[in-house]
């Protein structure tokens, strides 16, 4: 996938060598250059499959596998399991999520204390959200406090979390941010990443990174040349250079 990127860089260098002042490249010329770049269809397909698998679009991955013959490189059933875990955290069913992770691979939480702590933290937050203060207090003593003893680095976060117990109106307190849905999403994506790592897969799809590289390369190029650039990433339409 990196080769795509290097092609852009090479073009950039070429253009730089050619033009001391800002050069104008016409659409015709640009398209000719683009046509010279050979990208294998299979590579593109693998890029798409990588995105579908990592992001957990099982059905789409399955269809795409059938249509394009691209190997997903993983048992698609494990994606379903992973997405179920992620969804459970996103809905606030943390205990359910923990059980699912443990069924999937008991090693994940046993060897990843930080993740385990964050899941316990999330469980506590959900208890507070549901107004189960007494249960939350008990949970903090039984489950959260020992984590702080086992690992000093959790103490600060632990204090911040347990502070939720101190306020009557938790949504308007200094640590109220913990109750945000964004906190659930953060925990969910941490679990998701840990499962992916345990399956020897990268935790982020490659496609967004390539898009970032594209934007970076365009910005670099803007300083040196006027050319048909892609403004809208969703349509990837080339827009004529402003002359």
């Amino acid at each position: 996938m990196m080769s795509l990127f290097w092609i852009v860089i090479r073009q950039l260098e070429e253009i730089e060598a050619m033009a001391a002042s800002k050069k104008v490249i016409t659409r015709e010329e640009w398209e000719r250059k683009l046509n010279d770049v050979k990208i294998r269809k299979e590579d593109m397909n693998r890029l798409v499959m990588n995105f579908l698998v990592t992001e957990g679009y099982v059905d789409a991955a399955e269809k795409f596998q059938m249509e394009s013959g691209t190997d997903p490189g993983i048992d698609l059933a494990t994606i379903t399991d992973r997405m179920a875990v992620k969804k459970a955290v996103q809905c606030g069913n943390v205990e359910d999520a923990i059980e699912k992770v443990n069924d999937l691979n008991p090693e994940i939480l046993d060897t990843n204390p930080q993740l385990f702590f964050h899941l316990q933290q999330q469980r506590f937050i959900e208890l507070i959200r549901n107004g189960k203060v007494e249960e939350a207090l008990e949970f903090a003593q039984e489950e959260l406090a020992p984590r702080g003893e086992e690992n000093q680095s959790f103490l600060e976060e632990l204090e911040r979390t347990v502070a939720l117990l101190a306020f009557e109106d938790v949504s308007n307190c200094p640590v109220g941010g913990l109750l945000d849905i964004s906190q659930r999403l953060k925990t969910a994506s941490e679990v998701n990443a840990a499962i992916l790592t345990s399956q020897s897969r990268e935790k982020d799809p490659k496609l967004p990174n390539l898009l970032k590289m594209l934007l970076w390369a365009q910005n670099q190029l803007d300083e040196r040349a006027a050319y048909p650039r892609i403004k809208d990433l969703s349509t990837a339409m080339l827009e004529d250079p402003a002359i």
Partner: peptide, 13 residues
């Protein structure tokens, strides 16, 4: 068994 498993995983105490 499952419940014991889920209680002890990641939890030294």
């Amino acid at each position: 068994l499952r419940e014991i498993k889920n209680q002890i995983i990641g939890n030294r105490t």
